[in-house]
Simulated scan of single mutants.
Amino acid sequence: MRKTAPIPTAIPLTIGIIAVSFSSIFVKWSAAPASIQGMYRLLFTALLMLPFIRPHLAELKSLSLKKASMLFTSGFFLALHFLLWMGSLKLTTVSSSTIILALEPVFIVIGAFFIYKERTSSFAMFGMGVAIIGAVLIGWGDIGVSRTNLIGDLLSVFGTLAVSVHMLIGQKMVTQVSSYVYSFVVFLSATIVFAAYNLIGGISFTAYAGKDWGMFLLLAIVPTVFGHLLFNWLLQYVSATTISMSILGEPVGASLLAFLLLNEQMTWFQILGGLLAIFGLIMFLNAGRLKWKPGKGGSTEPLKSVS
């Protein structure tokens, strides 16, 4: 049985949706490479978590090699996600990139089927198909814009695949370690991966303007602390399904912010594709948890959730 939240859950959910919607805006406002933005975003987040780590020190010290390896792997794919997705924002529009990123639940359910043998309903699969068609239309619309935009769309697709692997690992690991320890170790691991990438690539760690450093800090505080960490905290009080629905709010919020702050426009192909993708995802996320099979005596019982 879930705990009762100290405040109405709609409040932190709304805060989280607004917070993650700003992520793409801050990325666009910084001229620093995506690998540097990602590294400092996660490093600063880990540093902000550090003052509250004392109650979790014993758990950190007792981590087995196997658990630590899985957490590092999760961090590796988180870093890969940020590298590809934040890189895509340098090449395509906020609307295209974030709507494609919203296909994350589709990739997760496919991965969960092969890894955890979890099934979903035919109606949910239909919704998945609609969402994929919408994503294809977004890419098709960007073909008419430029080849660069299309490459950005592809980077967003691969970035979504990477974060899906990260989430599938996390689905297992959060049952073995606390959400705070999971987030802290994964963020530090991703920071190390980024640092190695930047070092090998000869990318400067410090040659950035004051505005860029401000964006690094904002990326850590707004979409990470008030977004991702807040969603992790909410898992104590609401289902993963409820939180995953918030992913549909990001492309809407991010597109609106991009229109107001970056003066980005969308083609009709992109608008139609975005609406189809969001509609398909709504069908998928709702139907995916309403799977039933005949029980004894002709009654019904729920199948295992895909969350």
Results as ranks from 00 to 15, higher is better:
residue 52 F to I: 00
residue 57 L to Y: 11
residue 154 L to P: 05
residue 142 D to A: 08
residue 126 F to M: 13
residue 231 F to I: 09
residue 79 A to G: 14
residue 296 K to F: 14
residue 62 S to M: 09
residue 110 I to N: 08
residue 224 T to P: 04
residue 11 I to Q: 09
residue 158 F to K: 01
residue 271 I to E: 06
residue 235 L to H: 08
residue 41 R to M: 03
residue 71 L to C: 03
residue 60 L to A: 08
residue 87 G to H: 05
residue 14 T to Q: 10
residue 268 W to N: 15
residue 99 I to H: 04
residue 13 L to K: 03
residue 271 I to L: 15
residue 8 P to Y: 07
residue 200 I to P: 02
residue 29 W to Y: 14
residue 112 A to E: 10
residue 50 L to A: 13
residue 186 V to M: 10
residue 125 M to A: 03
residue 182 Y to P: 01
residue 136 V to S: 05
residue 303 L to N: 02
residue 263 N to G: 00
residue 50 L to N: 03
residue 243 I to N: 04
residue 117 K to M: 02
residue 228 H to S: 05
residue 174 V to D: 00
residue 255 S to A: 13
residue 4 T to P: 00
residue 243 I to T: 06
residue 185 V to D: 01
residue 9 T to P: 10
residue 60 L to Q: 06
residue 24 S to T: 11
residue 60 L to C: 08
residue 294 P to D: 13
residue 135 A to W: 06
residue 172 K to S: 15
residue 116 Y to H: 11
residue 295 G to I: 07
residue 226 F to A: 10
residue 153 D to S: 07
residue 233 W to P: 03
residue 298 G to L: 00
residue 184 F to R: 01
residue 196 A to H: 01
residue 190 A to H: 03
residue 28 K to M: 05
residue 152 G to Y: 07
residue 246 S to T: 14
residue 218 L to T: 06
residue 7 I to M: 13
residue 205 F to A: 07
residue 131 A to N: 02
residue 267 T to Q: 09
residue 259 F to S: 11
residue 121 S to D: 08
residue 163 V to L: 12
residue 305 S to T: 13
residue 94 V to K: 03
residue 111 G to Q: 04
residue 212 D to L: 01
residue 64 S to E: 10
residue 92 T to N: 06
residue 140 W to I: 15
residue 94 V to H: 04
residue 224 T to D: 06
residue 271 I to R: 12
residue 290 L to E: 15
residue 81 H to P: 08
residue 198 N to I: 09
residue 104 E to H: 15
residue 241 T to P: 05
residue 116 Y to M: 10
residue 94 V to F: 06
residue 260 L to F: 14
residue 290 L to D: 15
residue 243 I to D: 07
residue 245 M to W: 13
residue 124 A to K: 02
residue 195 A to M: 13
residue 182 Y to I: 01
residue 247 I to R: 04
residue 221 I to H: 10
residue 210 G to H: 01
residue 118 E to D: 12
residue 121 S to H: 03
residue 113 F to R: 15
residue 26 F to C: 02
residue 267 T to F: 09
residue 57 L to N: 05
residue 274 G to S: 10
residue 272 L to T: 15
residue 71 L to P: 04
residue 52 F to S: 03
residue 101 L to Q: 10
residue 268 W to V: 14
residue 271 I to K: 13
residue 75 G to V: 06
residue 20 V to P: 06
residue 306 V to E: 00
residue 279 F to N: 02
residue 65 L to S: 15
